[in-house]
Nucleic acid binder design. Structure first.
Lengths: 123, 123
DNA sequence: ATTATTGTATTAAGCAATTAGTACAATAAT
DNA sequence: ATTATTGTACTAATTGCTTAATACAATAAT
C-alpha cells in the first residue's frame, strides 16, 4: 500500500518524517533491520532514488546505519531515540500553539477545543 | 521585513496561509484594502509573480476581491471569515492530534504537555 | 564457486516553483 | 489631459524534486 503522501512537501522529507515516527512510536525497535531500499520504495510507490535520498539523510542524523550488503538498521542508542521523540514533540507543540495563538485563540480555548475533539474521537 | 518563509513548502502556499491568518486574526478587517501586489511582494522579499499567484488563489476562494485599479480588498462577509477560522482551526487540531497519537502519546499526556508549555510561555 | 541481494553512484529527462524582465489596459490622482 | 498606480499577462531562465534506466562492488545465501 502506498504511504499517504501530500503533494506540497517534497516526498523525501515526508518519508523522513514517516520513518522517524515509526522509530519513536516503537513500530521499529532499536536494532531492527529495515526493508531494502528497493522494497521500501515499492511499498511507498516511490522511485528508489527518492527513498535512498531520505534514508541517507536519516543516516546522517545517526538514526540509521547501513551495513554494506546486509541492509540498514535502526540505531540501538535508545537515548538518541528518546531525545528525538522529545524534540519532535516539543517542536510540534510549539508550532501548534504558535499558530493557534496567531489565529486569535486564548490558551484556555485551545485546551477546550482539544478536549472536545478528543471526546468526539471516542465515538 | 521579510516574512519568515520555510524552504520546503512552496512560497506561494505559505503566503496564502500567512494572509489567511492575518484575516481570521483580525489584523486585516473585513473591507480593508490590501497593499498592492508589488508592495506586498517587496514586504515579503518575494517576486511579484509569486505574490500574484498567492493572491489569485485567495481570490478564487472568495476571501479577497480585486477592483481593477484601486486595489484588493478583504471580503466583508464575516460569516465566511468565521467559517474559515473554524475550519482552519479544526484541521490544525486534527493534524496535531493525529501526529501526537502516532508518536505514541496518550490523550492525557498530550493535554499535560500543552499545559506545561503554556505555563513555560508565561515566564 | 556461483548467484542473488545489498547499498550506492551516475546520467538523462521532465516538471513545478521561482525569479527576472517587460508590457498593457483601466482608472485614480494631479 | 497627463501621470502614476493598479491588477494582470507573458516569455525566458534557473533551480530542486522526481523518475527512469543502468551499473558496480561487497557479501550473504546457495
Amino acid at each position: 500500500m502506498p504511504w499517504k503522501l501530500d503533494s506540497n512537501l517534497p516526498i523525501y522529507t515526508q518519508i523522513i518524517e514517516h520513518i522517524q515516527l515509526d522509530i519513536i512510536s516503537g513500530h521499529y525497535q532499536p536494532g531492527d533491520r529495515l526493508p531494502s531500499v528497493r522494497e521500501l520504495a515499492a511499498q511507498a510507490s516511490v522511485n528508489p532514488n527518492t527513498m535512498q535520498k531520505a534514508l541517507s539523510e536519516l543516516e546522517r542524523s545517526g538514526l540509521l546505519h547501513s551495513q554494506r550488503t546486509s541492509g540498514r538498521f535502526i540505531t540501538e542508542d535508545i537515548h538518541m531515540i528518546e531525545k528525538m521523540k522529545e524534540e519532535l514533540a516539543a517542536a510540534r507543540i510549539k508550532d501548534f500553539l504558535d499558530t493557534m495563538s496567531q489565529m486569535g485563540f486564548q490558551k484556555k480555548e485551545i485546551l477546550a477545543l482539544i478536549e472536545k475533539m478528543q471526546k468526539e474521537d471516542d465515538q
